[in-house]
Simulated assay, not measured.
Amino acid sequence: MERKLVLASHGKLASGIKSSLELICGENTEIETLDCYLSEEFDLEKAVNELMIRHRDHELVVVTDLLGGSVNNEFLAHIQRENFYLVAGMNLPFLIELTMQLQLAESLSMLIETSLTAAKQTIQFCNQLISNEVAEEEF
Rank of each mutant, 00 (worst) to 15 (best):
residue 8 A to D: 04
residue 86 L to V: 06
residue 70 S to M: 13
residue 126 C to E: 08
residue 1 M to A: 03
residue 34 L to N: 00
residue 119 A to Q: 06
residue 114 T to S: 07
residue 95 L to V: 06
residue 139 F to R: 13
residue 114 T to F: 07
residue 138 E to C: 02
residue 30 E to A: 13
residue 71 V to G: 01
residue 9 S to A: 10
residue 103 Q to A: 11
residue 100 M to Y: 04
residue 43 D to R: 15
residue 134 V to D: 04
residue 130 I to A: 02
residue 28 N to R: 14
residue 46 K to R: 14
residue 55 H to V: 05
residue 84 F to K: 08
residue 82 E to I: 12
residue 5 L to Y: 05
residue 32 E to F: 14
residue 132 N to I: 01
residue 15 S to Q: 09
residue 50 E to I: 05
residue 17 I to N: 00
residue 102 L to P: 06
residue 48 V to G: 04
residue 109 S to P: 07
residue 42 F to S: 01
residue 44 L to Y: 11
residue 41 E to L: 09
residue 18 K to I: 12
residue 65 D to M: 02
residue 42 F to I: 07
residue 58 H to V: 02
residue 27 E to A: 14
residue 61 V to Y: 02
residue 43 D to F: 05
residue 101 Q to L: 11
residue 20 S to V: 14
residue 97 E to L: 10
residue 22 E to C: 11
residue 46 K to M: 15
residue 67 L to I: 14
residue 22 E to N: 10
residue 75 F to C: 03
residue 86 L to F: 12
residue 113 E to G: 04
residue 18 K to Y: 13
residue 129 L to K: 01
residue 70 S to Y: 15
residue 134 V to H: 06
residue 136 E to H: 07
residue 99 T to M: 13
residue 67 L to P: 12
residue 128 Q to R: 03
residue 120 K to D: 07
residue 2 E to I: 08
residue 27 E to S: 15
residue 74 E to N: 14
residue 29 T to R: 14
residue 39 S to W: 13
residue 122 T to Q: 13
residue 23 L to R: 15
residue 96 I to S: 13
residue 17 I to S: 03
residue 127 N to E: 07
residue 21 L to W: 04
residue 41 E to R: 02
residue 40 E to L: 13
residue 61 V to P: 02
residue 55 H to F: 08
residue 88 A to S: 10
residue 109 S to I: 10
residue 32 E to N: 02
residue 103 Q to D: 11
residue 58 H to M: 07
residue 42 F to T: 08
residue 117 T to R: 07
residue 93 P to I: 09
residue 55 H to K: 06
residue 32 E to W: 08
residue 128 Q to Y: 10
residue 87 V to Q: 04
residue 82 E to T: 10
residue 7 L to F: 02
residue 72 N to F: 14
residue 33 T to Y: 05
residue 87 V to G: 00
residue 2 E to K: 08
residue 135 A to Y: 09
residue 77 A to D: 10
residue 92 L to T: 07
